[in-house]
Design a protein around this nucleic acid. Structure first.
Lengths: 226, 226
DNA sequence: ACCTGAACACCGTTCAAGT
DNA sequence: ACCTGAACACCGTTCAAGT
């Protein structure tokens, strides 16, 4: 087939593009190989298994996050900025969010991010176990919240399940669900477990900012106590 | 084969047990059918596609959450309790957490939970858009954080990748990563992106409690402003 | 109504063989 | 060193056929 000089980065780039276009579940070694114009087994020589390929793809997404300088901003402003940047990076490749959200991130590509967040949290006065806890709060919130936001619908179901679920919600028993009924207009389609569209088509900007603000408020209170 | 009276709930129960034992990625219509002692295509008659089966399984997990009575506790105490109960439910079926974390939850089984949380947040004084935002903060934090905690390792990789990653972390350049180096003993294995074991084998109890406390602190501050 | 059995179009991965 | 080509043991799903 005259195909030559297949390289690791070339494969990873092609895989990311493929996932962006066709979804994570459509990614297969065979389909990707066909896209590149090579036999499936050629991929194995360069990147190993599919799991390793996906890991490499994830690393490139983390690598794309450019953090603001540390000392230009107050620690809390810096964290807000970083949270937004991470969210943006995840929104750029929404089909990859299940990997970030539910597989262990084991790549050194994440370490610069970890270092900078730790550094800023130390600057805010957190140390030792408190530092680790507060870091986990920040990282868990950002990565967890956004990957939940980007969750995709149940795949390969009929086309009308969205309208059906919307209908089910709106016709819920007002006696059994008074609080939901009172707030249905704001709730329907806009809140976790009462929506039928992914955050990739209907981003939850306002709620993300509000949630982030709550986290920062909590951090400020905790800081004063330390 | 003399198999009779195959029922929907029977299939769902068997599927949950299968996922608990063998993992989500091992679940296949064919394997489950063999386990039950029936032809794969028989399952389709009762539950439809695999996606629908997984949805039904998820619903049973949410159904298992028994919430405390509303008025026995202060609103903030109640939320802490509910967060712990949800986390426990997810820990009971860790192999299912990718579904909760990265697929839209579209089941009426979630609605009682939504209703009660909304009710308590209204009691705390939140209304309108603020109510929705604060609800999303709580739900997004709990579901997102815990599904991240329960993330599984990259599948079917060699046995020594855990030790290898642990080694990479500890031998990181102290000049490039001073904050990480200073806190390496507490960090390694215990924080998001610097761990190599899932929360199912190494639960992050302390950090969860601390993160939850931060959220509640933030909610209390916001409440005073409303 | 409920299940069988065959069939279709896929998978990931291994391995011997080529160049 | 790098890729081909065949092969193995799987998938989800459809559909005609049985009872």
């Amino acid at each position: 087939m005259g195909r030559r000089s297949l390289s690791r980065p070339e494969i990873v780039t092609a895989a990311l593009r493929y996932v962006d276009q066709h979804g994570l579940e459509a990614l297969s070694m065979r389909a990707l190989a066909k896209e590149i114009g090579v036999y499936p087994t050629a991929l194995y020589w360069h990147i190993g298994t599919k799991a390793q390929l996906v890991g490499a793809v994830t690393a490139t997404v983390l690598d794309d996050i450019v953090l603001p300088a540390d000392h230009e901003l107050r620690w809390d402003e810096w964290l807000v900025e970083v949270a937004r940047l991470c969210r943006q990076a995840m929104h750029r490749h929404p089909n990859l969010s299940p990997v970030i959200g539910s597989q262990l991130v084991v790549t050194t590509a994440a370490l610069p991010l970890v270092e900078r967040v730790l550094n800023v949290l130390e600057r805010a006065g957190f140390t030792g176990r408190d530092l680790v806890d507060v870091y986990n709060a920040v990282a868990g919130f950002i990565l967890g919240w956004v990957s939940l936001e980007l969750a995709s619908g149940p795949l390969d179901v009929e086309d009308d399940w969205q309208e059906e679920y919307a209908g089910q919600l709106r016709s819920v028993n007002p006696n059994a669900y008074p609080a939901m009924t009172r707030n249905m207009d704001l709730l329907a389609g806009n809140a976790f477990m009462t929506r039928w569209e992914s955050g990739r088509v209907r981003p939850m900007d306002r709620s993300f900012e509000a949630s982030l603000e709550l986290l920062i408020l909590g951090l400020r209170v905790k800081q004063e106590r330390v």
